[in-house]
Amino acid sequence: MADTVIDLIQPGSSLNLGIGMPTMIIERMPPEKRVMIHSENGVLGVDGRPGPDTASPTLINAGKETIAVGKGASFFDSALSFGMIRGGHIDFCVLGGMEVDRHGNLANWMIPGKKVTGMGGAMDLVHGAKRVIVMLSHFSKSGKCKLVSQCELPLTGERVVHQVVTELGVFTITDGQFKIEQLAPGVSREQLGITPELLA
């Protein structure tokens, strides 16, 4: 999945990676793509992981994981970091999700009465990044498809998602439908668990 997402990122662009699954992209991003990876805690230019000897407690990403930075990197405060996001200076963001619906609504920060993680920077990111990609497992633990007609959980943003990547395929939100861009090898439309009228 990380490699599928990387194929969607234009060379030379800036990219914010959300907490969770998207951080896998850090290790797999090929240097020749010259992508500047942003993390909203205040760094542009994330470049892989440190060794045990070079890890620094003051050098982390938004997931609080240790990172390394490459040449050309910069550090800044949180207001500047979110100005970068809100001001439209970040080309792509990749976030995790609990539900995405056919209108591009995203839910990823709380399950009422059960779990609250908080929105962190997600509500700012979905309105700021030029292209919003949601990367998530296709089905929930109970087997329910996370690509739905209408989100039931509290929203992170309305009509904000452009593309969805799961282990089964890549989908673009188009005119109230999930347009299939590609399916993983051996996967059929029927296996997606998405109502046929929501698929294009």
Partner: peptide
């Protein structure tokens, strides 16, 4: 009170 992180930073700024 949960506040979106960019709004949180900007309100403080």
């Amino acid at each position: 009170t949960l506040v979106p992180q960019g709004t949180f930073s900007e309100r403080i700024r």
